[in-house]
């Protein structure tokens, strides 16, 4: 796998996470909506940055799918937060994977920032969900 392939996978993940946050927002409790919007916006920014990065590497960024399968039915606010945790954990895993596909220090910095931001957002959602501990020893693992 090349670093472009890994970045395309990470971009595919960002598309899926953004789609998933739409579901989270539809079921989330009112008090969580600002956090949902902020998290979704962060992933939109990361998606755009990743697409730009791919173009700079002469690659055509992959497009989003129109629909994604959910890992479990999301039918109430608690499940919405659970989905948000899963989305961030998956995003962290995708960016962690990029780290092992390149020796370029700048790309590694980019991937580490993304991994860390998703790991931090997962902590915030675990706190909201009352999951203890809210941290994991190896984010993205």
């Amino acid at each position: 796998m090349t670093e472009v392939d890994a970045l395309q996978d990470a971009l595919a993940g960002e598309h899926a996470v953004i789609w998933g946050y739409g579901v989270v927002g539809a079921e989330a409790a009112e008090q969580h909506l600002p956090a949902v919007r902020a998290a979704e916006q962060a992933h939109r920014t990361r998606r755009d940055d990743t697409a730009d990065l791919l173009r700079s590497m002469s690659a055509e960024p992959i497009e989003s799918e129109a629909y994604y399968e959910l890992p479990f039915p999301v039918t109430d606010p608690a499940l919405a937060v659970s989905l948000a945790v899963h989305l961030e954990e998956g995003s962290a895993a995708a960016w962690r994977f990029v780290l092992g596909q390149t020796e370029d220090a700048e790309l590694r910095r980019t991937a580490l920032v993304a991994l860390s931001e998703s790991a931090l957002q997962a902590v915030q959602w675990r706190l909201q969900a009352g999951i203890a501990p809210a941290t994991v020893a190896f984010p993205g693992q």
């Binding site: 796998m1 392939d5 890994a6 996978d9 990470a10 595919a12 993940g13 598309h15 899926a16 996470v17 789609w19 998933g20 992959i62 799918e65 629909y67 994604y68 399968e69 959910l70 890992p71 479990f72 989905l83 899963h86 989305l87 954990e89 998956g90 995003s91 895993a93 995708a94 962690r96 994977f97 092992g100 596909q101 993205g140 693992q141």
Partner: peptide
Amino acid sequence: MGTPLSRRRVLVALATGVGAVGGA
């Protein structure tokens, strides 16, 4: 890296920690 996941499955893959993510 094995066969890429279909993109539609990515959300499931993200949620379960497999996939492209597959590498992980």
